[in-house]
Simulated scan of single mutants.
Amino acid sequence: MVSSINPALKGITVLIPGLLLSFTFDVFTPLVFLVFMITFTLLFSGIPIKKWLLFFSPFILLALGFAWMTMLYTSDAFAGGEHLFSVWRFEVTTGSVMVGISLALRSLCFVSLSLLFILTTDSTKFMLSLMQQLKLPPKITFGILAGYRFLPTFRYEYQVLRQAHRVRGIGRAKGIRERIYQFRRYAIPLMANAIRKAERTANAMESKGFTGSADRTHYHQMKISRKDWMFFGVINGALIITLLASYQLGYLNIFGHRFV
């Protein structure tokens, strides 16, 4: 399962295709890679299909919006080809349609890569992996972890604060001025609690001997195994094969330059 892959290497693995695909402007390359990513995610990630569709579906509408706006505002360098139709003062050509579809498919590729990483990665293991494999300073790592652990408590404190205000007869804000004043009523107590929690956490870490030194032992050892490198090779190998196939078939287009 993808959830057992080293998080740091997994992040690098999904980052490389995202960067390389951003240079392609044809339809074939992102379409083929998107089909591969969807198939790979549904077969090997362990993510329930309903859960994946729940997160992925809204981005389809967003990608369609990207495609439509790109068709209307495509630069002259990419807007060549036959004239199809006009919308107000905007002329839509075959070139602008292809660029718009390409952008939409690339956006969905980025989404599929991001969901594969987000839905299969434990945040704590990810930070430990960054510290052990990519040498992120422990001060930053444990600071981020502590802040992440505080998020649920902030939400609970906010709900308690709202209920306390309602018990005292303070209703919902209606106008802009009341909303600003309400924001101040909520923000100041929450910030005060956050500062107190941060200070207590810092004192607790110092009392346990935390100095922020990179030369330290780890209870949870994050390692990179052969399975992790196989995951890296499969994802990026699929992208390389897609680029080669696109080049051989004459579809590959990088920044408007078509390789035939």
Rank of each mutant, 00 (worst) to 15 (best):
D215M: 03
R200P: 00
I188P: 01
E199V: 15
G143K: 11
R172E: 12
Q221R: 12
R166A: 08
K135R: 13
G171H: 09
F210Q: 00
A198T: 13
E157P: 10
H220M: 05
Q133L: 02
M205E: 02
Q182G: 03
P137R: 13
M222R: 02
T153S: 15
S213P: 03
R196A: 15
G209D: 02
Q133F: 04
Y148V: 14
R184F: 08
R168L: 06
E206N: 06
I170A: 00
G175Q: 04
P137N: 12
H220N: 08
I140L: 10
V160C: 13
L190P: 03
Y156M: 08
Q159A: 08
S225I: 03
T153A: 13
M191S: 14
L145P: 15
Y156N: 06
K197S: 10
P152W: 12
A173K: 05
R184T: 10
L145V: 10
L151A: 13
A194Q: 08
R149D: 09
I188R: 06
R177K: 11
A173T: 08
A164K: 14
H165Q: 14
P137H: 13
Q132N: 01
A164R: 14
Y158M: 08
N193I: 10
R166D: 05
K223P: 00
R200K: 07
V160T: 15
R155V: 09
R216I: 07
Y158R: 09
R155A: 12
R216Q: 00
F210N: 00
A204C: 03
R172K: 14
G212F: 09
S207H: 04
K135E: 05
D215C: 04
G171L: 11
N193T: 14
M131R: 10
F210D: 00
